[in-house]
Design a protein around this nucleic acid. Sequence first.
DNA 1: CACCAGGCAAGTA
DNA 2: TACTTGCATGGT
Length: 207
Amino acid sequence: MRIYGRLLRCFGPRGWWPGDTTFEVMVGAILTQNTAWQNVEKAIANLKDKGLLNPSGLYLIPERELAELIRPAGYFNVKARRLKNFVKFLFEHYDGDPDRLAESNLSDLRQELLAINGVGPETADSILLYALNKPIFVVDAYTKRIFSRHNLIPVGASYSEVQAFLMDNLPRDVALYNEFHALMVHLGKTFCKAKPDCEPCPIKGVG
DNA sequence: CACCAGGCAAGTA
DNA sequence: TACTTGCATGGT
């Protein structure tokens, strides 16, 4: 909790998630898998230009054409299939309405999302937290790296272990989870690359 | 030129 | 369960 306070003072609110609609956040969550957000923005812009950034738009477009539009986001063939899987799920279970997912129970909905081929834990939790305002902590590579280097979690801790550690030590607060994860990514991008050493870090010394 | 980015699934042992 | 590999563009 003190880590969070210090980071928030250092960097201020990050204003996550960038996206105008529930559906745009969901699409962004899939497109950003192991990919720089800057590249995702190009893909999102292509979809917007074609008026396809909505459930029926992505449902109706042929997968090959979708792949071409999202090419800048990388892994475009894989991600086109994953987006297709996701919108298919939307229509089969929620009448194609992204906002109706919020009506479901959190743990049930999480299991439904994880059952979609192409949606793993981080993507599911990003959708739950940032698109649907559900209280769940999004763990990413930066979060693991930062917490393990500060000896707060073991180096090889699993996704669920890290998530449990954080949620057990923080109040169950959507706004807090939202901002905390955004700050983790900002801190990671600014100071901690995928190297064993690390620039001087604003949370050093905070237990 | 090499390395990395807001992962995931499928195959192998 | 715990590794390994393929997927791909664009920035530094």
